[in-house]
């Protein structure tokens, strides 16, 4: 397991696309803050101007704005990282190794976690640069609250990357997987289910959907919100990791 993980990380750190994605994300994040200053200075979030939000609230504000660009970047990277190995056929060289099918999926899941962590780090840096330059505001807010928010959102976004990994493994098609990734990032399914739910009284299942949980503004001082977020993230991570490993174990590698 450790060797395959080392191999995937070796490929990960030498991956130019990954750095390019992070750079583009960073640039667009700063540009987004600039645009907010230019056109949405008057926009208010519950009576408070966006420029006066601390980092925790600003993250919640940006993540809740559809489409979630972080999810789009995660989808692109997850699909790219898996298909680059699969379409080259490189996996055939090591898959006959003992338990390599399981280890290969687990290592990709861990690489995706590293990418999501780097994306969050990039977001923090970009926010700090953008908010300093355009809002003249570097307030982080309560550090404990910020940590709870970052950990929860990291878990949710990592769960999303595993879901995309599973989709690309099953679909085996770059375009179809990318389309599915964009549709999920736009939360089309969540919105459709919410609309259907509004027709039925007392049904609130859509709040447990992964993307709905990601984009919903949460209060991380509220234990129920933390529990809800953690439960959704852990369940999606476990279910889709299990499905991905099971699929790989049964897959004919033609």
């Amino acid at each position: 397991m450790l060797n395959i993980l080392r191999m995937d990380f070796y490929r990960f750190v030498r991956n130019r696309i990954m750095y390019l994605l992070l750079l583009v994300f960073c640039a667009f994040q700063i540009f987004g803050i600039f645009m907010t200053k230019q056109y949405a200075q008057e926009m208010e979030k519950g009576g408070i101007s966006v420029s006066s939000l601390n980092e925790s609230d600003f993250i919640q504000y940006t993540i809740s704005q559809p489409p979630s660009w972080m999810l789009v970047y995660i989808a692109v990277f997850s699909i790219f990282f898996y298909t680059s190995e699969f379409s080259s056929g490189f996996h055939k060289n090591y898959i006959p190794m003992h338990r390599a099918r399981i280890h290969s999926v687990c290592s990709k899941i861990l690489v995706l976690a590293a990418f999501v962590a780097m994306l969050f780090l990039t977001m923090l840096i970009a926010d700090w640069i953008g908010r300093t330059l355009f809002f003249d505001n570097t307030s982080l807010g309560d550090p404990v609250y910020l940590m709870k928010l970052l950990i929860s959102q990291f878990m949710l976004h990592w769960a999303f990357s595993i879901l995309i990994l599973y989709i690309v493994m099953v679909v085996k098609n770059l375009l179809v997987s990318l389309t599915a990734g964009f549709v999920l990032a736009l939360n089309v399914a969540g919105m459709a289910l919410s609309a259907l739910e509004s027709l039925v009284q007392g049904l609130h299942l859509s709040q447990y959907l992964l993307i709905n949980t990601i984009v919903r503004v949460k209060d991380f001082n509220n234990a129920a919100d933390i529990l809800h977020t953690a439960a959704v993230a852990v369940i999606v991570i476990l279910v889709f990791s299990f499905l991905a490993v099971r699929y790989k174990l049964q897959e004919d590698l033609n």
């Binding site: 680059s84 080259s88 056929g89 490189f90 996996h91 055939k92 060289n93 006959p96 190794m97 003992h98």
Partner: peptide, 15 residues
């Protein structure tokens, strides 16, 4: 299967 070296169809290589 670890005791086998495999070259099936096209070589699996990163270009």
């Amino acid at each position: 299967f670890e005791r086998m070296g495999v070259l099936i169809e096209n070589p699996g290589l990163y270009l």
